[in-house]
Design a protein around this nucleic acid. Structure first.
Lengths: 182, 182
DNA sequence: AGTGAAGCGGGACGACCATCCCGATTGTAG
DNA sequence: CTACAATCGGGATGGTCGTCCCGCTTCACT
């Protein structure tokens, strides 16, 4: 899917691409996915054509925004797996993902099913956070730290629930779920 | 807000209104809120003008659909309060609400924040299901059946989570939450 | 049956938005 | 410094959808 043998972008193009990406990340995070592409272009101080050349569709743009974050989260997951026992590693990633989603409205919307196929985008980039969460769940269950009947689909729903919370003590909601999982 | 001193509708108008309402209930339940009003009119075999005369905006239409269901749920809540101890009554209503939402996609979407102000619509009709849930939470907490730090906002989020579940054993997810609340 | 108003159908209108296109501009190789 | 190709800007295009309007039909009261 990605361009192969891509010749290097001209300097101004590279600059504009980065500027669009940075603006889109901010805007998606604070205002969600429904922001028009025109608006992102306006705030990035480029034409709409510039946006749509670098990112042919809105979904492409969002996927690109997601990529950085996914990479970071995948590293975080690996660190947890290495340093903690299975139960804590799993719960730690779960908590991290929820906090991450709470700080990024677009990510939360994508997770709660509003259109974009977030898993495909992440997996395509080799940053399979979902897969890691799935594995960590299995390990935590084998270690007896998490109830055995819980499935990955359950987790997704429970994450969506925490993300739907609008208040000032997200951890209280997370703790309800953590208790329920154990 | 509602029309006062309304003179009775003509027989055909009443028939059409009911037909639109019934169709809208089905369509919203199975396909969600994004179905165009034109499509509802088409399936109800009326013109779009007929729909928009009875229900000036799409939100009005959805609110009317919700009303029946809300009334039923309010009665259910009252019955639970009368017949069960506070903890079971509360958990029973919570479970009922989630199952209800799972069977009605439009309701679930409205609860998870997609636009419509569901609480205002229900409260205006004197069917304050939310208020009942809130009261039952307080009672259950005073009876020691539910953790005291839980708030109504937490509940809404956790309900949204259960509604986000797509699978065949919703009760497994509900049970995670129930355990976490106790 | 007759008549006036209530109600009907569905096309028109306007708002919004993603995507595409093209003439003007700018970077860069030679 | 020149020339050309890459890139830019932002208006044009096409599609979707909610709401409104108006000429025609149907009801219901006398």
């Amino acid at each position: 899917m990605t361009d192969h043998a891509e010749r290097p972008l001209r300097a101004d193009a590279r600059r504009n691409r980065a500027r669009v990406l940075r603006t889109a990340a901010e805007v998606f995070a604070t205002e969600g996915l429904s922001v028009p592409v025109h608006e992102i272009a306006r705030r990035a101080e480029v034409g709409t054509g510039t946006v749509s050349r670098h990112f042919p569709t809105k979904e492409d743009l969002f996927a690109a925004v997601l990529l950085d974050r996914m990479r970071t989260l995948a590293d975080y997951a690996d660190a947890l797996t290495a340093e903690q026992e299975p139960g804590n590693a799993f719960l730690g990633l779960f908590t991290k993902l929820v906090h991450e989603g709470a700080a990024h409205r677009g990510l939360a919307e994508a997770l709660t099913g509003a259109g974009f196929d977030i898993e495909a985008a992440a997996a395509a980039a080799g940053c399979d956070v979902s897969g890691r969460l799935r594995d960590m769940l299995t390990n935590a269950q084998q270690a007896g730290a998490i109830r055995p009947e819980i499935t990955y689909a359950d987790l997704k729903a429970l994450m969506a629930g925490c993300l739907a919370y609008e208040g000032d003590d997200l951890d209280r909601v997370i703790n309800v779920v953590r208790r329920g999982l154990q």
